[in-house]
Simulated scan of single mutants.
Amino acid sequence: MKTYVDIIRELREDRDLTQKEVAQYLGTTQQVYSRYENGENELPVRHLIALCRYYHVSADYLLGLEPF
């Protein structure tokens, strides 16, 4: 089963975005965003919501709760 760590990386890479571009959208640094993708930091709810809007996906999908 995929985790949100896998999913946010795949969504970003599928759209040919850099970590820095996504971090700028979230209003954070590339280093902090990298920690989300590596599972070193938990994804805050505000960033979860923002990523759902950015990628036009549901929170269930992003969290790995929906079938792929």
Rank of each mutant, 00 (worst) to 15 (best):
D16R: 15
E42Q: 14
L51E: 01
L65T: 12
G39M: 14
A59L: 10
V45R: 12
V22S: 07
S34Q: 13
E66G: 02
L63N: 01
L51P: 01
E21F: 11
Y25T: 12
R12C: 10
L62T: 04
D16G: 10
P67R: 14
H56T: 04
V57C: 03
Q19Y: 11
S58F: 10
N38A: 12
Y55H: 03
C52R: 03
Y4I: 11
Q30A: 13
D60V: 01
V45A: 09
V22K: 00
A50W: 04
T18C: 05
L62K: 04
L11A: 03
A50P: 02
R12M: 11
E21Y: 10
E40N: 02
H47Q: 01
T28G: 04
Y54E: 02
M1H: 03
Y54A: 01
D6H: 13
L17S: 10
T29E: 03
C52P: 07
L51K: 06
D60N: 13
V32R: 03
Q24A: 06
G39W: 14
L51M: 08
A59H: 02
E13S: 14
R46F: 07
Y36G: 06
I49V: 10
E42A: 14
L51N: 00
R15E: 12
Q30H: 12
V45P: 01
D60M: 03
E42I: 03
E66F: 04
G64K: 11
R53S: 06
T29H: 02
T29K: 01
E66I: 02
E13G: 08
C52S: 12
I7K: 12
G64Q: 09
F68C: 04
K20Q: 11
F68H: 10
Y33V: 03
H47R: 06
Q30G: 11
S58A: 12
